[in-house]
Nucleic acid binder design. Structure first.
Lengths: 341, 341
DNA sequence: TTGAAAGCGCTAACAG
DNA sequence: CTGTTAGCGCTTTCAA
């Protein structure tokens, strides 16, 4: 194992001081051209690399941001992650990634662990546990200690910071309206994410669309499924007991599962039953019949979030105003919805 | 913004030396119980956190590993990533993630960037570009500089290091044999990954299975698809021109796309056409008919890779032997294959 | 044009 | 029991 080469080594070789070497490599005008030349050449030949840990200690900046995600097996979060990675890497930032698995405790312990100087800032989407617990002190503490945070997707009003959110309410509103306009009478709602903020917003959008269109909100048409529950066992009786002719799914999983159940039940899609689901991953696209989805532009969300954080880190001013960016959703019509024409 | 609290601050408060504070917080027996007590209490109250950058500089260890992945939108790689994150976090390691987008240049520049002291070691799956280029000096350099590397999935014999690989050849072999045994006569092979090592191994397994079972390898039944190509345009004539009754797909994408094309063509699955595809993501499972797949146990691959790296980092001995772990695949029979009964 | 010294936050060997 | 000193690798005054 070759020893890492340092300024000290080079200084010894040329019998000069460490300071001289440092200045030479930084191309300081204080140093004579010849000295610079020979030192630079030697450094290049021997692949000298400044130790960034030492630099971080000196500058109190690590050029590294933390990304905290509830669950990376979720296609929205992977896409957001890809966007963040792209922007970060374009701007010379590294990324430390942590996955909370929806656990409040994990989220807190991760933040504690990372508030130790290794990071310049955080990008986080709250875990389900945190949104249930409603305790955000680990986040406000970080901000107080000078670590900027950008929250995305699953956010809270209880913490003041930059935010990038998806227009969940409007997305659900438009989707519901599309179902109404395409002739659906009894629109059910299925959600595995009733615990998290975005689930609640989507539910609101659904209700508002019904009301604005002169329909009553029928609570018995709303099915909240626990992740531990057996989906099919719940869904089958649910579908049979009511005269439902459309489903709005608040998450990718339940849309796909509902679609399967319905296909098996022999109902005609979209004639007897329309489906729209949130989150546009590969799954709804490739399934047969392909599922109409509301796309949240995950990648873009990630890019914007990363850009906001990096801009803040690079900016000189201490306290520029916090921003909240809202990313619009789009309805992608596929085979599970009737077209309006 | 509150200033980070350091040993120095605490030392000043109690009018003791920095060393005393350091020892107190590390619960050294050298320090009197009272002094320790009051200093520890103060530190806790004021949320003192040792600066890990300073510690890294001192110990020349960062407790951070780099994970370099070609493409995280690939379900095998996300699963592997999840496994690595789990093991790393259990062992108190952080993870810096980079995505090469299959580019050799990106891979090299990432490695250059990260060889600066921020990482204790790497876990990498080679980019397609690197496997085409066949230049691995960025990797051997890292190893020479004392940065251990664990390669997984897409590896090369040209670099000596720890490796975790999937038994691709055998996986393809068994799958092909399954098709043969279930009565398929003309088994085609479709690949979007003919450029990468695992693609080549899977191809070998396919050929070997044919030969071992007294079949001829018919090169015209092997379709290599470029990612830029329009898959359907290639596949349709391919399927029509030969009397194919089974397809082995070397990657998840082409399996799903082939399945769709076949469904549309009206052929009966699996009676007229059987399909087995590599990589067991959600897609093949939820698609109708669900696709029989060869699972590579991505999560487990990730866990093993991370564990090997961490064990090496934690071990005292400089040069323990390199290991190569082979993870066995399994065939998951679903609706696109006839059972053997 | 070069170098000595201080310091980023911390630990450890050694004195007192 | 506590403090002094040196040092991890680097930059940056300030002096020479």
């Amino acid at each position: 194992m070759k020893q890492r080469i340092t300024l000290k080594h080079i200084a010894k070789i040329f019998d000069v001081s460490i300071a001289t070497v440092s200045k030479s490599l930084n191309d300081s005008h204080e140093i004579s051209t010849e000295t610079k030349a020979k030192i630079q050449e030697y450094a290049k030949e021997h692949h000298y690399k400044p130790n960034s840990i030492a630099l971080s200690l000196l500058n109190k900046k690590t050029k590294t941001i933390g990304i905290i995600i509830p669950n990376i097996l979720n296609s929205f979060f992977v896409k957001a992650f890809v966007g963040m990675e792209k922007v970060a890497s374009e701007n010379g930032f590294s990324i430390i990634t942590c996955i909370t698995n929806e656990s409040y405790e994990k989220e807190v312990s991760i933040m504690e662990l990372l508030k130790n100087g290794t990071l310049d800032g955080f990008i986080i989407s709250l875990s389900e546990g945190t949104q249930v617990e409603q305790d955000f002190s680990h986040l406000s503490n970080a901000i107080n200690e000078g670590l900027p945070i950008v929250m995305f997707d699953r956010v809270t009003n209880s913490v003041e910071c930059d935010k990038v959110i998806v227009d969940d309410m409007l997305g659900a509103y438009h989707a519901t309206e599309h179902l109404i306009n395409s002739g659906c009478k009894n629109i059910a709602l299925i959600s595995e994410i009733y615990n998290v903020s975005v689930g609640k917003l989507r539910l609101e959008g659904y209700k508002k669309a019904l009301i604005d269109n002169g329909r009553a909100v029928n609570e018995s048409l709303i099915l909240n499924v626990n992740k531990k529950d057996d989906f099919d066992v719940l869904l089958n009786p649910f579908l049979k007991s009511k005269k439902i002719d459309a489903i709005l799914s608040l998450d990718e999983n339940s849309a796909v599962k509902a679609q399967r159940t319905i296909v098996h039940s022999g109902m005609k899609i979209p004639e007897d039953m329309s489906i729209i689901g949130f989150t546009n991953g590969k799954l709804p696209r490739f399934v047969t019949p392909s599922i109409s989805t509301i796309t949240q532009h995950g990648r873009h969300v990630g890019e914007v979030a990363a850009q906001i954080l990096i801009d803040r880190l690079n900016s000189e001013e201490e306290d520029s105003e916090y921003v909240t960016k809202i990313i619009k959703t789009n309805l992608i019509e596929r085979a599970t919805t009737k077209s309006l024409n």
